[in-house]
Computed example of a mutant assay.
Amino acid sequence: MRITGRVRETGEPITEAFWSDVGNVNAQVMDADSGLAVGYDFQGVGSLIAIDPIPMVSNLTVQEVEVKFSQLDDRINELLRVYDVRQAKVEIYRGEFDPETMRMVEPAGSRFVGFVDGAPVETPAEGQEGSVSIKCVSSAQELTRGNPDMRSHESQQSRDPGDDFYRDVTSCADLVIFWGKRGTIREDAAA
C-alpha cells in the first residue's frame, strides 16, 4: 500500500509505502498511471491488520475500501498525525510469491487506486482496544464531480482569448426566427 500525503507546513508531497509483513523490502509493482514496472521501498508494518475485500468490477462505480492498522505503530501514527492525508492518493497492490524461494513471481499488480476519504483515529478507554482505519474511495469518484464553469463568452475567453464560439450565447433566448417570406431575425432588428 502506498499513500501520498502532504507536509502540513509546505504542502510538499510525501509518500509512505507499507506492506503487511515485517522488515523493509524493495518490491516491483505495476504503476497504475504508466503501466510500467517500478520499484518502491515498502516499510514492514506487521500491524497492517486488515484490508476490506476489493471488488473487481469492470464498470465505473465508485468503490470503497477500508484499511485497518494497529494504533500502536509509530509510522502509522506519524503519517496520520504529522502529515495531511485528506484526499491523499492511495494505491493498493497484490503480489504473488514463489513458496520455495519467497521471491515475487512478477511485479505486484495494482488492485486499487483512489483517495483517502477519512482517517478516524479511535482512542480507546483504558483496557479497551483502539484502531486506526483509513477509508478510501476509488478514483472513479472524480467522474461524479460537476463542472461549476458556465458556458459563457467570458468563460471561453479566459481559456482561449481568440475563441468567439459563445459570443452570442446570452442573446440566443431573445432570437425570433421567422420561417416565412418576410420577417425579422430579431425583434429589435430592422427588416
Results as ranks from 00 to 15, higher is better:
M1Y: 08
M1Q: 05
R2K: 10
R2P: 00
I3S: 00
G5S: 14
R6C: 03
V7H: 04
V7N: 10
E9V: 04
T10C: 02
T10S: 11
P13T: 13
F18Y: 15
F18T: 10
W19V: 07
W19P: 03
V25Y: 07
N26F: 12
V29R: 02
M30Q: 12
S34Y: 01
G35E: 01
A37I: 04
I49E: 07
A50Y: 11
D52S: 14
P55K: 08
P55M: 05
S58Y: 15
N59Q: 05
L60P: 00
L60R: 12
E64F: 05
V65C: 06
V65T: 12
V67C: 03
V67S: 02
V67A: 06
S70A: 12
D73V: 11
R75P: 00
I76R: 02
I76S: 02
E78H: 11
R81F: 07
V82W: 01
D84Y: 02
Q87R: 13
A88Y: 07
K89C: 01
K89E: 10
I92D: 10
Y93G: 05
R94V: 08
R94C: 09
G95T: 08
F97D: 05
D98R: 02
P99D: 08
E100W: 04
T101D: 10
G109S: 12
G109Y: 03
G109W: 02
F112P: 08
V113E: 06
G114Q: 06
V116N: 03
V116F: 05
V116P: 02
A119N: 13
A119H: 14
P120L: 08
V121C: 01
A125K: 07
G127C: 04
G127L: 04
Q128H: 14
E129S: 13
S133V: 15
S133K: 14
I134V: 15
K135G: 04
S138M: 07
S139D: 15
S139F: 09
Q141G: 00
E142V: 14
T144P: 00
G146A: 10
N147T: 13
P148G: 13
M150C: 01
S152H: 00
H153L: 02
E154W: 10
S155A: 12
Q156D: 06
S158D: 11
P161G: 10
P161N: 07
G162H: 04
D163H: 03
D164G: 00
V169P: 06
V169G: 00
T170Y: 01
C172W: 13
A173Y: 09
D174N: 06
D174I: 01
L175E: 14
L175Y: 12
V176E: 15
F178N: 14
W179D: 13
G180D: 10
K181S: 13
K181C: 00
K181G: 09
K181Y: 10
G183P: 03
G183I: 02
I185Q: 09
I185M: 08
R186D: 12
E187V: 00
E187S: 09
A189E: 15
A189M: 09
A190H: 08
A190E: 15
